[in-house]
Design a protein around this nucleic acid. Sequence first.
DNA 1: CCGCATCCGATTGGATACTG
DNA 2: CAGTATCCAATCGGATGCGG
Lengths: 110, 110
Amino acid sequence: MPDARGRTRRPEPGCPVEIALAAISGRWTTLVLRELMAGPRSFGELRAALPSLSAKVLSERLAALADRGLAERTVLPGFPPRTSHRLTARGERLRPLLVELYRTGTAIAL
Amino acid sequence: MPDARGRTRRPEPGCPVEIALAAISGRWTTLVLRELMAGPRSFGELRAALPSLSAKVLSERLAALADRGLAERTVLPGFPPRTSHRLTARGERLRPLLVELYRTGTAIAL
DNA sequence: CCGCATCCGATTGGATACTG
DNA sequence: CAGTATCCAATCGGATGCGG
């Protein structure tokens, strides 16, 4: 690991590895990211794509991504209410990590 | 995502992404992996390198890695008891993922 | 339609103490 | 030295119901 932040003796929040782990942490998070990687999605579209995911958890995931500046929410005018959830430019930077997760998972599978 | 296992609508254990996530899941796991990446380590050496990590959790992490065939334990003869924990060839395949976690963490840091 | 509030069971991780 | 055994507080995630 290049610099001092990669030589911690504890899981410190400032360590780049911890930052990346925090970004993808939590059940369903990578699946939500996969959906958003394909383009903006409404809350309902996300629920339809991931039927077993409860509204509560989806809400939490989207809020966590927004808090970290990885995704954002736009409320569209009119009725019925429509929202658009999309990745930010920063969120897009998670793509290579997801690809690497997939690749590694394949490599270590029995 | 290439094949059908990357298009699940749920977090299925057979999905490569889930396999990779399971391998590095749990607090301290990436730090333990970092230590083992540098070469075989005894239980005590790992505790010395990560002083705030309790024996219980270290035990659990090493057991989980062993269960997945990513690390292995060798008990050396003699007294006092000495053990050697090392990565398997399969465990070595996690290295690019850790590098990518570091890189991504740097990229998305504020 | 899009969420948030509440409740609750399950899992996690830390502290402490003990054994071969 | 190298763990295992217990206990416990905190977190997580699923179910359900309500509100804008």
